[in-house]
Every structure is written in structure tokens, then in C-alpha cells.
């Protein structure tokens, strides 16, 4: 066979195999997995949504903002970490800040957040934990540390006119240990915590 005929043959095999493989791997495989997911694991496959009175209020996996129309934090809700996704917790634009360790903007942001969180919760600046000062990598982090949740108890209880120990016990019930005891970190899911908090009223 001449070189050009050999090449033509290889090109033909390449084209046909790419078409067949696209059908198998690019259409068949994702559809089968979707079928399995929708039949066997519909809750997870559709985003682990959280409902209150039959209305979906979010996903347990995706953090959301608890702010007024001007973007100020609402004191009656537990607040999540700072977010770099869009204007904050924009689930259509996941992102970290990507600010480097010596970036003046990040340094200024951390100082500003420390002052804001301390004033907002009426605590000393030294008591503010690291996760309250830093934006997560997805911008959609659904969790805060138990320290940050407990720091907010007094404020939330006062705003809602609830006894502090009642709010504290809701927080404690929502502290989730490490997966299997040693994977990752101890967390509090902010949406689940706020849903549980809201249920106290009724």
C-alpha cells in the first residue's frame, strides 16, 4: 500500500471508531447512569433538596445567602462563610476568590470581615474563627465550623426572642462529626441549621 492509501485507511478507521465510541460513551453511558440515578437514587441525583412545608428552599449541599435586599446579613439567621461566587452564593457562578496569600485585597478583606463579624455578634475580634474570615473554594460552601455557629447563638437567640440554650441545643444537634470518624472536618450545615431553627417557632 502507498503511504497516502495507508493514511486514508487509518483516517477512516479513526473516524468510524470515534463515531461509535461517541455513541457508546457520550450517549449510552450517561443515559444509563442517569436512568440508574433517577430510579435508585432520585434524592441525590436531583440535588439533595431541602423542603419546608412542601416548598423547596434550597439544596443541603449548596450554601445560600441570608441577607436583605441590600446584601446586609440578616441577624435572625445563622450566617455562612464569605463567598466569592457572583454576588455571594450565586449557584450559577461557582468560584473561589483566587486571591494569593500576599494580595493586599485579601488582607484588607480579612480585616474588614473580622471587624464586621465581631461587631455583628458583639464579640472580641480575637474570637472570630478562620472560616468566618475566608471565602471557600466553590463559593457555595454549605458548612461553617462549630465554633462559628456557636459564636452566633447569642445574636440569633436575641433577634428571635428565644432562650439562648434552646438555640444552642439546636446548633449542637446540627454539629456533624468527621465522615467515618476521621475524614474531613467537623461541620455545621447552615441551611439545615436555619431550617431547624425556624421550626422552633411553631
Amino acid at each position: 500500500m502507498s503511504a497516502s492509501r495507508t493514511n486514508l485507511r487509518s483516517a477512516g478507521v479513526a473516524l468510524r471508531s470515534m463515531l461509535v465510541l461517541t455513541a457508546v460513551l457520550g450517549v449510552g453511558y450517561p443515559l444509563v447512569i442517569t436512568g440508574i440515578g433517577q430510579l435508585a437514587l432520585p434524592g441525590q441525583a436531583n440535588g439533595t433538596t431541602v423542603s419546608v412545608d412542601g416548598e423547596t428552599v434550597g439544596s443541603a449541599l449548596i450554601g445560600q445567602s441570608f441577607v436583605d435586599t441590600e446584601g446586609n446579613p440578616l441577624p435572625e439567621w445563622f450566617q455562612p462563610r464569605p463567598s466569592a461566587a457572583g454576588d455571594g452564593y450565586d449557584a450559577g457562578a461557582s468560584s473561589g476568590s483566587n486571591l494569593g496569600p500576599e494580595n493586599p485585597d485579601l488582607i484588607a478583606a480579612i480585616e474588614e470581615r473580622r471587624t464586621q463579624v465581631a461587631e455583628f455578634n458583639e464579640v472580641e475580634e480575637t474570637e472570630v474563627p478562620s472560616d468566618a474570615l475566608t471565602a471557600s473554594s466553590s463559593g457555595l460552601d454549605p458548612h461553617i465550623s462549630p465554633e462559628y455557629a456557636l459564636l452566633q447563638v447569642t445574636r440569633v437567640a436575641a433577634e428571635r426572642g428565644l432562650p439562648e440554650n434552646q438555640v444552642r441545643s439546636v446548633v449542637e444537634a446540627n454539629i456533624q462529626g468527621r465522615d467515618i470518624g476521621f475524614l474531613g472536618e467537623t461541620t455545621v450545615n447552615v441551611l439545615r441549621l436555619n431550617v431547624a431553627l425556624d421550626a422552633l417557632k411553631g
Binding site: 476568590s97 500576599e102 472560616d131 474570615l133 475566608t134 461553617i144 475524614l183 461541620t187
Partner: peptide
């Protein structure tokens, strides 16, 4: 180490709470 991590108390900028530093 570094200005921002030391100021925040830990290198948690750009890290998720559920994974933590080692995750």
C-alpha cells in the same frame, strides 16, 4: 505562613470546610 493566612488564623482561603486542610 504568609500575611493573609496568618491574619485569618489558618490557610483556609479557597478551602472548603467539609474537607479541611488535609482533605
Amino acid at each position: 505562613r504568609g500575611t493573609a493566612p496568618e491574619l485569618a488564623g489558618a490557610a483556609l482561603e479557597g478551602k472548603e470546610q467539609r474537607f479541611g486542610i488535609f482533605g
